[in-house]
Nucleic acid binder design. Structure first.
Lengths: 138, 138
DNA sequence: CCGGTTCGTCCGAAATCTGGACTTACGATA
DNA sequence: TATCGTAAGTCCAGATTTCGGACGAACCGG
């Protein structure tokens, strides 16, 4: 998890990934939509390309223009985005509901569910009791 | 999602939350395990308490000592953590496998699965075709 | 008394982020 | 032809964060 955050935990990184999921692949469009400083976004796009999450494709030369696409690794970030949105919607949304919703082919919103990897049963959060054994050092 | 990241997207924040899930509720223990600067971690714990994710409980006075517990909102971050770990394990792990694993009561590791909110069907990533319609503003 | 533990704070240095101006190269408009 | 708009950045100086390490207070055990 620490490794994930090294790649994806920098400011604006996940927002940029979300934009590409929403179909906004161009620099200026992302700047407009997420409001990041151009400088920072440019740096972030570079690191995400280096990390193998985006692929940078030229769509015009002379005025050299580029678009960003998700690699397979990038597409696998989808659940992260949905999960984060889900938490924000539950705990942080104000009167105005969630602005952007990702939808299933049936038209209903998507969510993630915690399940056991082998038995497939939905799971609840394992919570350690308040007074657990506390070993001083080891 | 942007709102989620404002709360939880700062450096070390999710690592600290993970530590509490793992039962490490004390300042020094977190510092040792995640390697954050003490200063930064102290600041982060404050913001997480302010955000209603942690609750700070005193477990001894005179040398005033505190532990951090998850609120309900904090416990709801569990899927976020699992999802992030899942992505890192798939795309970033080296020869040595994932170090910390969260387990189901049956002893198997947990994962999250993308499903439709209403029909419950597993979903795959919706991917917009390369040359989607591009409307300038809306 | 001495060392160890715990939970921080304080400090100056380093890294990162920020907003805005600027650049280059078109195409469209007047 | 001059000007406007768009696109994808770069450059810069200043603000904000993070960093590592030293320090302090308050206890405990020997």
């Amino acid at each position: 998890m620490a490794r994930s955050l090294e790649v994806v935990g920098e400011k604006w990184a996940l927002l940029a990934v979300r934009e590409v999921f929403l179909g906004n692949r161009r620099f200026d469009e992302m700047v407009r939509r997420i409001g990041a400083p151009r400088d920072t976004l440019a740096a972030r796009l570079r690191t995400l390309v280096d990390a193998g999450i985006f692929e940078r494709r030229q769509y015009s030369d002379h005025p050299a223009r580029f678009e960003y696409f998700l690699t397979d690794a990038g597409k696998d970030l989808y659940p992260v985005i949905v999960t984060l949105r889900q938490w924000g919607d539950r705990h942080l949304s104000e009167q105005d509901g969630p602005p952007a919703v990702f939808t299933h082919t049936c038209g209903q919103p998507l969510m993630t569910r915690l399940v056991c990897e082998s038995c497939g049963q939905p799971a609840s959060v394992p919570f350690r009791p308040p007074s657990a054994t506390h070993q001083p050092a080891s």
